[in-house]
């Protein structure tokens, strides 16, 4: 098991390194000249040469990549053309909001996936409704779910807020950066409740499509497992259908669904970018969405590196979890 974890971690490191090379290469082919972007069009030739020297642009290609990597290791992602602040500072202030949204979206996606899979697999009158939900849900773009949610639950019913993370003026800061947790840690459950109300719509809008994909995979492996011999044995020894499904079949079906979860996180991140823009969620997705029209490549590449690393991390964890769920996997 330790060997497996070491192998997976090494592979993850290689992939993140490859991603940095891709980002460096993209920066090089980008038509936006970093010197002009920082100094503006009316800079003097002397200032341009000086800035090129300061950024190291006069040095050989590989040396530039080396110092770029060195910078990354020290948390230097360059300066944002738009906010004129270091990208790492910007990301640091926006990351907690995105982390909280993504974690809740993932939890919602998993819960919904299990409900959808069980609801459409087991024999009961509502199962065809669930199957319909599976097909329709896979086709709804996240932004449509977001705006229809705002129309219904904010505009029409007035149940949920439509923008931002919190309506508390001075929410407690730290230690986790998750308002739902920090509120509890600071003994202010009202903050937690308020943050949760803000989270509900954006997190569900992000979760819907991943939930359906995971649910479909879970459903097909559930159906496959239900025909297995051990299910017949379990039924024959008098277990109820519920005990058979929850106690035996679910664990054996979880592996394919875990792979799908890992894959879906990548798609979920693009949903996060769109949804944060709609809900005015102060996270790195909104930061990226606003950097796109400004052609702010350092900011975009910073967000991409961060989300890419997050994706690789999630998939590494998935690999390890799969080995735990099914001890036959060990390579």
């Amino acid at each position: 098991m330790i060997q497996l974890i070491a192998k997976r971690l090494a592979a993850a490191a290689v992939i993140v390194l490859a991603l940095t090379a891709v980002m460096f290469f993209l920066q090089k082919i980008s038509p936006v000249d970093p010197v002009h972007a920082m100094l503006g069009p009316s800079a003097s030739p002397a200032a341009i040469v000086a800035e090129q020297k300061r950024l190291g642009l006069d040095r050989p290609f590989l040396a530039q990549y080396g110092s770029y990597l060195n910078g990354l290791l020290h948390g230097n992602l360059g300066m944002s053309y738009r906010t004129r602040r270091p990208v790492s500072t910007d990301l640091g202030s926006f990351l907690p909001a995105t982390a909280e949204l993504s974690v809740y979206a993932l939890i919602f996606a998993l819960i919904l996936a299990v409900i959808l899979a069980l609801g459409s697999t087991l024999r009961w009158p509502g199962s065809s409704v669930f199957r319909l939900l599976l097909i329709a849900g896979a086709s709804a773009p996240a932004f449509l779910l977001g705006i229809v949610g705002i129309l219904i639950f904010y505009s029409k019913l007035g149940w949920l807020p439509a923008t931002g993370r919190t309506s508390v003026l001075n929410p407690p800061t730290g230690p986790t950066g998750f308002l739902t947790i920090d509120g509890l840690l600071h003994g202010e459950p009202s903050v937690t409740f308020d943050a949760f109300r803000h989270l509900l719509m954006p997190a569900l809008a992000v979760a819907a499509i991943p939930a359906v994909s995971i649910g479909r995979v879970l459903r097909s492996s559930l159906i496959g497992q239900m025909r297995a011999d051990y299910v017949r044995t379990a039924r024959a020894k008098g277990l109820t259908e519920r005990q058979v499904v929850l106690g035996h079949v679910l664990r054996n079906s979880v592996n394919a669904a875990l792979s799908m979860t890992g894959l879906q996180v990548g798609l979920m991140f693009s949903g996060v970018v769109v949804i944060e823009e709609i809900f005015g969620w102060p996270g790195i997705g909104q930061y990226m969405a606003q950097s796109i029209p400004a052609a702010d490549f350092p900011a975009i590449s910073g967000v991409t590196l961060l989300l890419g690393a997050g994706y690789v991390a999630v998939n590494t964890i998935v690999d390890i979890l799969q080995a735990i769920a099914d001890p036959r996997i060990n390579a």
Partner: peptide, 21 residues
């Protein structure tokens, strides 16, 4: 596998941003 291990939609955004819309 290296490509598959990256979040494709997000990388696509970075590629467009670099190519210039």
């Amino acid at each position: 596998d290296g490509f598959l291990a990256l979040p494709a939609p997000v990388v696509a955004i970075a590629v467009v941003a670099a190519l210039g819309g």
